[in-house]
Amino acid sequence: MNSLYNFAVGPLAWAAFIILAVTAVWRLWSMYTLAKQKDASSVAYMSWKFSLRSIANWLIPYKSLGWKTNPVLTAVTFVFHICFVVLVIFVTPHQILLENAFGITYPTLPTAAADALTLIVIACCCYFVYRRVTNKTVRFVTRTNDWVSLGLVAAPFVTAILGSWGVGGEIMPLLHVLTAEALIVAIPFTRLAHILFALFTRAYIGSEFGGVRHCKDW
């Protein structure tokens, strides 16, 4: 058990991150070459100014028409995404792992806060599930991929909180690490690929709207 755990936090984690790095770079690079090759008439309009303008405006909650029209989802998605990033970076065990590997130290969240945020994330995921089931449009378009992605995202949090509560003993941290690694590896190949591409699609449409259509896209 212990050696399995050590393997999971050690070599397997390295493997997961390396796979993510390699596949992410490869996916972004091949997308870029494809764009240059076949979307030259779109790429030509890419503009820093309008890209950043669009991204910035969409980062403001309730600024865009989309955020305004979907108030609950907006709250949930902002909370979810922020908590996600905060937790991944600032939970103590992660910092310790990083310290062991690279000697990096930085302040971390107290356990109570981490637990609370984790529960919030899980709640957000529950809302996503609830919405996928109850919202007619979302249900109409949902496919397996969406459930898989959602499951992949939720799993590390569920295992983390159970681990934090001491449920399941030693198995939970192991499950946490394994599910987290599954999530990491899955990023470039599932709906979670939006982590890689969303900024670029936003930047592109922002450039088209700003530069060609002289109009905001939010």
């Binding site: 979302v138 709906r191 670029f200």
Partner: peptide, 21 residues
């Protein structure tokens, strides 16, 4: 078609936010 279609297709979160539009 190229990257545009691919990126749009792969990144759509099927969140349904566009419906009301």
């Amino acid at each position: 078609t190229g990257a545009k279609l691919k990126a749009f297709s792969e990144s759509c979160m099927r969140c349904g936010m566009c419906a009301e539009a």
